[in-house]
């Protein structure tokens, strides 16, 4: 019974909670990574792979509403996606060849920089009712 909870119930609940944030674009994926690597004890590479896959259903179900509500800047998509694919492909290839410990340290540094920036960085962009 407890195996069902740790292997299914908890992952589904955590995935749903971070999935809401992912669908908002607020960094749910980063949070899921933190959960997987620091709480669930999942290996860094596997955690990153899980996170990549998990984003697909979260994004696919959130996007139709965003599109319909007019929140997607359409002319950004093509240039950003093309450049992004090029770099993400190369980076994924590099990451899957890196030592787990090294990757984990780099990831930790990345999180600290992101967190400090979110807390103390300049307030983002134009003011908008949120």
């Amino acid at each position: 019974m407890s195996a069902v909870i740790t292997q299914w119930v908890l992952p589904i609940l955590v995935g749903a909670a971070t999935g809401i944030l992912s669908g908002f674009g607020v960094g749910g994926g980063t949070l899921l990574l933190v959960y997987l690597t620091t709480f669930a004890g999942v290996d860094q590479h596997l955690a990153q792979g899980i996170n990549l896959l998990y984003f697909l259903p979260a994004a696919l179900t959130a996007l139709p509403a965003h599109w319909k509500n007019g929140y997607i800047r359409r002319d950004a998509l093509l240039p950003a996606i093309l450049a992004g694919l090029l770099l993400s492909g190369a980076a994924a290839w590099l990451a899957t060849g890196l030592d787990t410990g090294l990757l984990r340290r780099c990831f930790g540094g990345f999180l600290v920089i992101l967190g400090l920036y979110e807390l103390f960085g300049p307030a983002p962009g134009k003011k908008e009712g949120n």
Binding site: F24, F55, Y71, L77, G89, A92, T96, P124, K126
Partner: peptide
């Protein structure tokens, strides 16, 4: 210079195909 809400939603649309490629490589 996108407004915040547009930036959040647009980022989801941009990241999605990147995840497909990266996940395939992993």
């Amino acid at each position: 210079r996108l407004d915040q809400r547009t930036a959040f939603a647009t980022s989801v649309a941009v990241i999605l195909p990147l995840c497909v490629l990266s996940a395939a490589i992993y």
